[in-house]
């Protein structure tokens, strides 16, 4: 059984990514389940979702249980650090979305460099998408998914992911989506 969490901000496509991964798992005949996707999505709040692949998972991912994390936004990735364990493999996207507290000067956006270097010491694998990486924002989600799919032991094979994209992605958007995915796979 493998467990994965996705962290991000409402509106980034967490729900969609969950659907994609689940669809791919079904195609691969892997028993897949999710729990609740926490957060009031479209209101710009933080959102995280857990997926379990294989028995006896029921979709719940608890603290310390995530074998994989896909972090769509930097601050939220840091916030979900408690889900990780020493064997975790993680991809963190280079998107930064300022919460109100930062705009208002009440808090500071956290320093990512220190966090990522500590993360690299603690866990198995970290792919930190660099600041200067620019992808068409419409397909950035697929780029990050591509990177995730290249993490060792990722629960669903890439061929199933691309099949799922063909089936689910917006008409006309499948080709660029898959292209972005491929780009992600060769990122590191």
């Amino acid at each position: 059984m493998k467990k994965l969490i996705i962290s991000g901000v409402g509106g980034q496509g967490v729900t969609y990514l969950v659907r994609l991964l689940m669809h791919a798992a079904v195609l691969a005949d892997i028993k897949v389940a999710t729990g609740e996707i926490h957060g009031l999505s479209q209101r710009g709040g933080m959102v995280n979702a857990g997926i379990t692949f294989g028995e006896p998972g029921h979709g719940q991912v608890d603290a310390g249980e995530a074998d994989f994390m896909i972090g769509l936004e930097r601050l939220e990735a840091q916030r979900c650090a408690s889900y990780l364990n020493s064997g975790s493999r993680v991809v963190i996207n280079n998107t930064e979305i300022m919460p109100y507290a930062v705009n208002a000067g009440i808090s500071q956006y956290p320093d990512m460099e220190t966090f990522v270097s500590r993360l690299k010491d603690c866990i198995e694998e970290v792919v930190y998408v660099r600041d200067d990486t620019t992808i068409d924002p419409r397909y950035q989600l697929y780029f990050v998914l591509g990177i995730a799919s290249s993490l060792q032991g990722f629960p669903v094979g890439y061929n199933y992911l691309s099949q799922a994209i063909e089936l689910i992605a917006r008409k006309g958007g499948q080709a660029p989506a898959i292209a972005a995915c491929e780009l992600g796979r060769s990122y590191n």
Partner: peptide, 24 residues
Amino acid sequence: SHKQPLAMLADFTDKLPVRPPTLC
């Protein structure tokens, strides 16, 4: 036996800016 969160990461999750839902 169960997997544990990493103690070494605990101090990174304190004091993070909150991100409540907001008006769109």
